[in-house]
Computed example of a mutant assay.
Amino acid sequence: MGLFDFARNIGNKLFGSEDEAPEKIKGHIEEENPGVSNLEVSVKDGVATLSGQAESAEAMQKAVLMAGNVKGISEVHADGLTAPAPVQEVQYYEIQSGDSLSAIAKKYYGKASDYPRIFEANREVIKDPNLIYPGQKIRIPVE
């Protein structure tokens, strides 16, 4: 999966100093348990590095998004996070000002009413379908 870029100055504020960032990000990912075992997180200069074993490509993608959508993180390296090959193709989308999950669903699937599909694919990343923010990155399952 390699490297992902994120907006460093937006997202969930989980830590006050970079020294506490690895523990806070690891706890954040493990709390939702997207399917990653032996998770290790390190953070240096706003770059989070993840390692461990993901039970699926989806679990790996969610862990990366959960780490990257944290305020203070500008990149996520996941070369040390192993996972099986993906069974479903996904695209990544960065939320823009004025977006809603319905509008995104209309853009990708042709029907605004398909927004639950996007919400379910990002349940660990998005807690409430009405609370998304510009700069947040999410997964869009490809039909």
Results as ranks from 00 to 15, higher is better:
1 M>G: 13
3 L>R: 14
4 F>C: 03
4 F>E: 13
4 F>Q: 12
5 D>Q: 12
6 F>Q: 04
7 A>S: 12
8 R>F: 00
9 N>F: 09
9 N>E: 15
9 N>M: 11
9 N>H: 14
11 G>Q: 04
13 K>Y: 08
13 K>E: 15
14 L>F: 11
15 F>P: 09
16 G>N: 15
16 G>E: 14
17 S>E: 10
18 E>L: 10
19 D>R: 15
20 E>Q: 13
20 E>S: 15
21 A>L: 09
23 E>W: 05
23 E>S: 13
23 E>A: 15
25 I>Q: 06
25 I>E: 01
25 I>V: 12
26 K>V: 04
27 G>V: 08
31 E>G: 03
31 E>T: 12
34 P>G: 06
35 G>E: 11
35 G>M: 11
36 V>E: 02
37 S>I: 15
37 S>L: 11
38 N>V: 04
39 L>Q: 09
40 E>S: 14
40 E>W: 09
40 E>L: 10
41 V>C: 08
43 V>N: 10
44 K>A: 14
45 D>V: 03
47 V>Y: 02
48 A>W: 12
49 T>D: 14
49 T>I: 11
49 T>R: 13
49 T>W: 06
50 L>M: 11
52 G>Y: 06
53 Q>G: 02
56 S>A: 10
56 S>L: 04
56 S>P: 12
57 A>P: 01
58 E>P: 00
60 M>K: 15
61 Q>P: 00
63 A>N: 07
64 V>P: 05
64 V>M: 10
65 L>H: 09
65 L>T: 02
66 M>S: 01
66 M>T: 01
66 M>Q: 02
67 A>Q: 06
68 G>P: 10
68 G>H: 05
68 G>I: 07
69 N>A: 07
72 G>I: 03
73 I>D: 01
74 S>E: 15
75 E>V: 04
77 H>A: 06
78 A>S: 15
81 L>A: 00
82 T>E: 14
86 P>I: 03
89 E>Y: 03
89 E>Q: 12
89 E>D: 07
89 E>N: 09
90 V>E: 05
90 V>S: 05
92 Y>F: 15
92 Y>L: 12
94 E>V: 08
95 I>T: 00
97 S>V: 10
97 S>N: 11
98 G>F: 01
100 S>F: 05
100 S>W: 04
102 S>I: 00
107 K>Y: 06
107 K>V: 02
108 Y>E: 05
108 Y>Q: 02
109 Y>K: 01
111 K>V: 07
112 A>F: 06
113 S>P: 00
115 Y>T: 03
116 P>A: 02
119 F>S: 09
121 A>P: 07
121 A>Q: 04
122 N>R: 04
123 R>W: 01
123 R>I: 10
126 I>F: 08
126 I>E: 07
128 D>S: 14
129 P>R: 11
129 P>D: 01
132 I>N: 05
133 Y>P: 00
134 P>I: 08
135 G>H: 05
135 G>L: 03
135 G>Y: 06
137 K>N: 04
138 I>E: 02
139 R>L: 14
139 R>G: 00
140 I>T: 09
141 P>C: 08
143 E>G: 08
